[in-house]
Simulated assay, not measured.
Amino acid sequence: MSAIASGELTTPGLGGGLRDIRQSGFLLKLLVRKELKVRYRGSVLGLLWSYVKPGVQFIVFYVALGVFLGLERSARNPEGLSNYAVYLFSGIVLINFFTEALGNAARSIVNNGNLIKKIYLPRELFPVASVWVSAVHFFPQLVVLVIGCVLAGWHPNLIQLLAAVAGFVIVALLATGLGLLFGAANVYFRDSENLVDMLLMVATWASPVMYAWSMVHDKLGAGWFAVYQANPITIGVELFHYAFWFPTTDGSVAMPPNLFSLWLFVGLGVAVAILLLGQFTFRRLEGRFAQEL
């Protein structure tokens, strides 16, 4: 009433963006619980699938790459990676979080179309809830990773623990920003889902999850390697390697140069920029979500 009296009009269907998420914590929790219940409805294993799927994925990659292709260091292959199992699984845990978060966030608006057409609530809640659901699946895998690292002689210092937090934050911000961008675009162009699927396939291999960064440096040279290293997912994976894998080695392995003095800030900057771009695009398009759905 005060807005009408003062002559101010607001555009229907538009909110305050991500700022509204802080005021809608209860709704966010409800959406996360709903997503988890719907996903595991009728499932025998339920949340245990968070252990089974990455476990099978790890075994396949470890046998194919570590054993058959010789990436695991051994007496016959001294040039391989020390504790390749820890190296591999620490990357898989983070990349699985990204792929699940972005894949679900990109479909979240369309999948909740019936709810969006009936009531108004901050639409950013749906992509953000998808990222939170992925985080719920991420932490059981993280527990398994920590147990494996401890068995391998893991003794991290504070900087290494902070590196793990920084890596997760970078990837979470990136997934949220891209989720907002593609979630909004998918309402108007359903081809966005196929584009996201291709992007996720490339992301798994375009970051040093299953191979060493030095292999890329040797093949591409310093110039193109800098382009490769600017990928926030690459930076997040390397921070995870530094946090979980590096302390289990003898310390003779080399991490990417300038990881903390340069690339950490590049990763945060790119992730925040994509988050802002995703929020801007989302707010420009959300006004017609109900009509398009």
Rank of each mutant, 00 (worst) to 15 (best):
A172D: 13
L173T: 10
P140D: 11
C149W: 10
W154K: 05
W154L: 02
G153W: 14
L115I: 08
S130T: 09
A175Q: 00
F89A: 12
W132D: 06
L178K: 03
V136G: 12
L145S: 09
E100I: 05
L162P: 08
A166M: 08
G103S: 14
V169M: 10
P140T: 09
F139R: 06
N111R: 06
I147F: 05
A175R: 01
F89N: 05
G103D: 05
F126G: 04
F97Q: 02
L121T: 13
I159E: 15
A106K: 03
I147Y: 09
E124L: 00
H137Y: 12
V165S: 14
L145D: 00
V143F: 15
V93E: 00
A135W: 12
G91W: 04
I147K: 12
V133Y: 08
I95E: 07
F139H: 05
P127Y: 08
S134R: 02
V110Y: 15
I95V: 15
G167T: 01
Y120S: 07
A105V: 12
F97P: 00
E100M: 12
L121C: 13
K118F: 09
V133C: 04
L151Q: 13
E124P: 00
L102W: 04
N104R: 15
G153E: 10
K118N: 15
I92S: 14
S108C: 07
I95N: 06
Y120E: 00
N114C: 03
Y120T: 06
V136M: 08
Y120F: 14
N111E: 12
A135T: 09
G103C: 01
F139Y: 09
G91Y: 01
A175N: 06
N114T: 08
W132Q: 14
G113L: 00
N96Y: 11
P122S: 15
A152E: 02
H155E: 15
V165C: 13
L94K: 04
L162N: 12
L173D: 04
L161R: 11
H155G: 03
L94S: 02
H155P: 10
I109A: 10
L115M: 14
F89R: 10
T99V: 13
P122F: 13
W132K: 13
L102D: 01
A172C: 09
F97E: 00
A166E: 04
Y120H: 12
L162K: 10
E100S: 13
L115P: 02
A105L: 11
P127W: 12
V93H: 03
A175W: 02
F98D: 02
A101L: 02
L161T: 06
G177N: 05
L178P: 04
F98P: 05
A101D: 04
R123K: 15
A166I: 01
L145I: 11
A129P: 05
L121I: 10
L158N: 11
W154F: 14
V169C: 07
A172W: 09
L142W: 09
G153Q: 08
G91A: 09
V165N: 04
P156I: 01
V133H: 05
C149Y: 04
L94A: 07
V165W: 03
P140Q: 06
N96Q: 14
A135Y: 08
L121Y: 08
W132C: 15
V171Y: 01
H155Q: 14
